[in-house]
């Protein structure tokens, strides 16, 4: 599975919605319930799924899902 597909599964899990489809341009506005509270749950779930760790700065600078995928890939490579 690609990073995007795995991330999509995490999104569906956290936001409890099996119809979520993410793309590089997806932002918090496109996904029902993606607010600052659920963002934290999302980050923790992503950390578990990919076995990586983020800092506060890294995750608050994200603009869209494309950024997020890039950050995850960088982290995995850097492991």
């Amino acid at each position: 599975m690609s990073t995007q597909e795995r991330l999509q599964e995490v999104f569906r899990d956290v936001f409890d919605d099996e119809e979520i489809i993410i793309g590089n341009e997806t932002t918090a506005d496109d996904i029902e319930g993606w607010d600052s509270l659920s963002h934290v749950a999302l980050i923790v779930a992503v950390q578990d799924e990919f076995d990586i760790k983020f800092s506060i700065v890294e995750t608050s600078a994200l603009k869209n899902v494309g950024d997020f995928i890039k950050l995850i890939d960088n982290k995995i490579e850097g492991k």
Binding site: V14, S36, V40, A41, I43, V44, D48, I56, S60
Partner: peptide
């Protein structure tokens, strides 16, 4: 308080005592 109290505490709760109970 979101960044320095809520987030670290929430992350800790999710990973240690209340595993995955969002």
């Amino acid at each position: 308080i979101r960044d320095y109290i809520f987030t670290p505490f929430y992350k800790w709760l999710l990973s240690v005592p209340f595993k995955k109970k969002i």
